[in-house]
């Protein structure tokens, strides 16, 4: 069963093609990594999937329904959770309240039904000590964790992670990978954009390589890493 399917999705900003005939599918409970050089269109691809940008052509199916023209809010309600590359916390709300919003609205429940779950997510993501602190006062690292925690609170079937491991120390990265593996183990499908390859490869089953808005490779991490084209473009290795 596929949870997400893109068919020939294209998008241009003026003369610049940011997505060209992108087609791929993600199975239920699968983890897919997306890599590519800066400016390859990775975040744009995320915004196309979540509905923040409308494609010029092509279709996007999520959970068996055509969502190509569906608003981001509705996609969230049908089970799509996302993080932003540049964290976007609700700064005047506390960390716990940030999760309460996501939990009650994103999962369509009452506050009292989701408060325990939100607290447990804070424990899992290591933010519990900051529960009653205003989100505006968090460090970048904590903001990235909050992005993940807030996305989880919406009870997603598909979790879209946009560069959340960047800038972490080795130890922090390991704990983040463990958190994401645990989420994935519960059957949540994950699409993860990341530059930290070893973190990515320890979670995902397949890798997708983007270059100038085109998919230039999709396969298991070993296959992708062995590909000559990928090594030249992405890793910058002359072969």
């Amino acid at each position: 069963m596929t949870i997400l399917r893109l068919e020939e999705v294209s998008k241009k900003f003026g003369a610049l093609t940011v997505a060209e005939q992108i087609s791929f599918a993600v199975g239920e409970g699968e983890a897919l990594g997306i890599i590519g050089p800066n400016g390859a269109g990775k975040s744009t691809l995320f915004n196309l999937i979540t509905g923040n940008i409308a494609p010029d052509s092509g279709t996007i199916h999520f959970s068996g329904a055509d969502v190509t023209r569906v608003a981001p809010m509705v996609r969230c309600l049908s089970g799509m959770g996302r993080t932003f590359q540049i964290p976007q916390p609700f700064e005047q709300l506390t960390v716990f309240e940030n999760l309460l919003v996501a939990g009650s609205f994103g999962a369509g429940r009452q506050e009292s039904e989701v408060s325990d779950r939100c607290a447990e997510i804070l424990v899992d993501t290591g933010l519990i000590d900051k529960a009653n602190v205003l989100a505006g006062g968090l460090t970048l690292l904590q903001r990235k964790r909050l992005e993940l925690a807030r996305a989880l609170a919406t009870e997603p079937k598909l979790l879209l992670l946009d560069e959340i491991a960047g800038g972490l120390t080795e130890g922090e990265c390991r704990s983040l990978v463990a958190t994401i593996r645990a989420i994935h183990a519960k059957g949540v499908a994950v699409i993860w954009i990341e530059h930290v390859l070893h973190a990515l490869n320890s979670v995902v089953e397949r890798l997708l390589v983007l270059h100038f808005g085109r998919v230039i490779g999709i396969g298991t991490p070993d296959e992708i890493m062995a590909s000559r084209e990928v090594r030249e473009i992405y890793l910058g290795i002359e072969v």
């Binding site: 809010m73 969230c76 996302r82 976007q88 609700f90 919003v101």
Partner: peptide, 19 residues
């Protein structure tokens, strides 16, 4: 609570399902 989220960051509010 949803209103406060919209005030703080409308894009993020939509992304977590707030109308």
């Amino acid at each position: 609570l949803g209103l406060a989220a919209v005030r703080d960051n409308e894009q993020a509010a939509r992304a977590v399902g707030v109308n």
